[in-house]
């Protein structure tokens, strides 16, 4: 089986690792080895699961012995609290994994990151290019971890010019099953906003995230890429589509409350509800050659209608009765056909 590609997916017990492994296995001539410190709850058919942590020093051996060509690293916990345990998993995980990859001379690595690493600041250009400095908050849980991971990735690129390291920086991920900062924000009863501020947001569907990861695994795309739909959407519009009642708070009070250790108000730093933090999608379009299939409106509508129906009829009927979803699906397939033609 010489023509078989062998891909290592980390974090297969988590949402992203699990889905991505399943997506990769849909292709032919692919063998997927999944590692995680925990056993995945949902079984992926054809997945070669090894119970191991990425921080294990013997990872190099594994990489060499199994003749792995591509590593897709998806073990990352989006935790808002900057605890030592999570830092250990997220940042030390990446650093140890990249170290092992360098030693085992792995030529192709794909990392998942977020547009939030650029930071939401008043003097940002409206659309940030990939070479913009990473000015995100240095103390905020998962964003700090992402920035640290990006730094390791940059070092790796400099030290291993022969290897291809793809970093995908996604917009706010939303999807019916995802647990991301944005879905947490949209699922809360009342969404806190800052009075008089309405920044643009870039929202990407979880399915598009998976497609982009698979796309990056299948090709050779060195460097970092912003990945999100071209069009942004104002925060208030997003909340409206999600059927949320915005709760405007005076911004000095909100900042004050957070800095004094009061309620967290939102699962992201307040600056992201105040200033825009949008990526420029030119590189995605032209070099990565990837196009998200879902419009941001469809993504948020799907989340909202799922929640609404689930409340009334339970989880089982949610998909069957979802009119919005089917309408959007029809539209999306039409667009895809038009694009192919």
């Amino acid at each position: 089986m010489a023509d078989e590609r062998i891909i290592l997916v980390t974090g297969v017990a988590g949402f992203w690792g699990n889905r991505a492994a399943a997506r990769l296995l849909e292709q032919e001539n692919v063998r997927v080895i999944g590692i995680d410190s925990q056993v995945p709850e949902t079984n992926v058919v054809g997945l070669d699961f090894i119970q191991a942590d990425v921080r294990n020093p013997l990872l190099v051996e594994l990489l060499r012995e199994e003749a792995i060509e591509t590593v897709l690293h998806l073990q990352f916990r989006e935790s808002t609290a900057p605890t030592e345990n999570v830092f250990e998993q997220n940042v030390m995980g990446v650093s140890k994994l990249l170290g092992a990859c360098a030693q085992a001379e792995i030529k192709h690595i794909v990392l998942k990151s977020s547009l939030m690493v650029y930071g939401a600041r008043p003097d940002n250009p409206m659309f940030l290019r990939e070479d913009h400095p990473l000015n995100g908050p240095k103390k905020y849980g998962y964003i700090r971890d992402w920035i640290e991971c990006e730094k390791y990735a940059q070092e790796f690129r400099e030290q291993n010019p022969g290897a291809t390291l793809t970093g995908l920086r996604f917009g706010h991920v939303v999807g019916p099953q995802v647990d991301s900062p944005m879905t947490r924000f949209l699922r809360e009863e009342e969404a806190v906003t800052l009075l008089g501020f309405d920044p643009m947001l870039q929202i990407i569907h979880s399915e598009d995230v998976l497609s982009a990861l698979v796309h990056a695994v299948n090709g050779e795309y060195p460097g970092a890429y912003n990945v999100a739909p071209e069009k942004g959407m104002p925060l208030w519009k997003t909340l409206g589509l999600a059927g949320k009642i915005p709760l405007p708070v005076l911004h000095p009070l909100a900042y004050w409350s957070v800095s004094l250790g009061g309620p967290r108000l939102a699962p992201m730093p307040l600056d992201y509800l105040r200033y825009p933090c949008l990526g420029d999608m030119q590189k995605m379009r032209e070099e990565l050659q990837f196009t998200p299939q879902y419009t941001p409106e469809e993504t948020v509508r799907e989340l909202a209608s799922q929640q609404r129906i689930r409340k009334l009829f339970g989880k089982k009927n949610a998909q069957a009765l979802d009119e919005d979803r089917l309408r959007d699906t029809i539209q999306r397939r039409k667009r895809a056909r038009a694009r192919r033609a």
């Binding site: 003097d123 940002n124 250009p125 409206m126 659309f127 800052l194 009075l195 309405d198 005076l250 911004h251």
Partner: peptide, 24 residues
Amino acid sequence: WFPTLPFVSDLLVKVGQVMANDEN
């Protein structure tokens, strides 16, 4: 300076004005 002001930032963006920098 304007993006830091409540309502002003919102208003300026909605009437099609853009923050001044070379990229924009």
